[in-house]
Amino acid sequence: MYKVIGTTKSRAFRVMWLLHEIGEPFDHITALPRSEEAVRFNPTGKVPSLIDGEAVLTDSVAIMTYLADKHGKLTAPAGTVARARQDAMTLWLIDEWDAILWSAAKHSFVLPEEQRMPAIKASLKFEFERSTTQLSNRLDGPFLMGDQITIPDILACHCLNWAIGAKFPRTDDKLFHYAKSLRERPAFQAASAT
Score class of each variant (00 low, 15 high):
residue 1 M to C: 05
residue 2 Y to A: 07
residue 7 T to C: 10
residue 8 T to Y: 03
residue 11 R to C: 05
residue 12 A to H: 02
residue 13 F to E: 04
residue 14 R to V: 00
residue 17 W to T: 06
residue 21 E to G: 05
residue 28 H to E: 00
residue 28 H to F: 06
residue 29 I to N: 01
residue 30 T to I: 14
residue 31 A to Q: 00
residue 33 P to Q: 08
residue 34 R to L: 13
residue 36 E to M: 08
residue 36 E to V: 12
residue 37 E to Y: 01
residue 38 A to N: 05
residue 40 R to W: 05
residue 42 N to I: 10
residue 43 P to L: 07
residue 49 S to E: 01
residue 52 D to E: 14
residue 56 V to A: 07
residue 57 L to T: 08
residue 58 T to K: 11
residue 61 V to A: 10
residue 66 Y to S: 00
residue 66 Y to W: 07
residue 72 G to I: 04
residue 73 K to M: 13
residue 74 L to M: 15
residue 75 T to L: 13
residue 75 T to W: 10
residue 79 G to C: 05
residue 79 G to T: 03
residue 80 T to Q: 06
residue 81 V to W: 13
residue 84 A to V: 13
residue 86 Q to N: 11
residue 86 Q to S: 11
residue 90 T to C: 15
residue 90 T to Q: 14
residue 91 L to K: 12
residue 93 L to H: 02
residue 94 I to N: 11
residue 96 E to Q: 14
residue 97 W to P: 01
residue 99 A to Y: 08
residue 99 A to D: 12
residue 104 A to V: 09
residue 104 A to E: 02
residue 105 A to M: 12
residue 106 K to M: 14
residue 108 S to M: 12
residue 109 F to H: 12
residue 109 F to Q: 07
residue 110 V to A: 15
residue 114 E to A: 14
residue 115 Q to G: 13
residue 120 I to R: 15
residue 120 I to K: 15
residue 122 A to I: 14
residue 125 K to P: 06
residue 128 F to A: 13
residue 128 F to D: 03
residue 131 S to H: 14
residue 132 T to H: 03
residue 135 L to K: 03
residue 137 N to E: 14
residue 139 L to I: 02
residue 139 L to E: 00
residue 142 P to F: 05
residue 145 M to Q: 11
residue 149 I to D: 06
residue 152 P to M: 06
residue 153 D to L: 07
residue 154 I to K: 04
residue 159 C to Q: 12
residue 162 W to Y: 11
residue 162 W to R: 04
residue 168 F to T: 00
residue 168 F to C: 02
residue 170 R to F: 10
residue 170 R to T: 12
residue 171 T to R: 06
residue 171 T to I: 05
residue 179 A to H: 08
residue 179 A to R: 05
residue 183 R to A: 04
residue 184 E to I: 06
residue 187 A to D: 04
residue 188 F to P: 00
residue 188 F to N: 07
residue 189 Q to N: 09
residue 190 A to S: 11
residue 192 S to C: 11
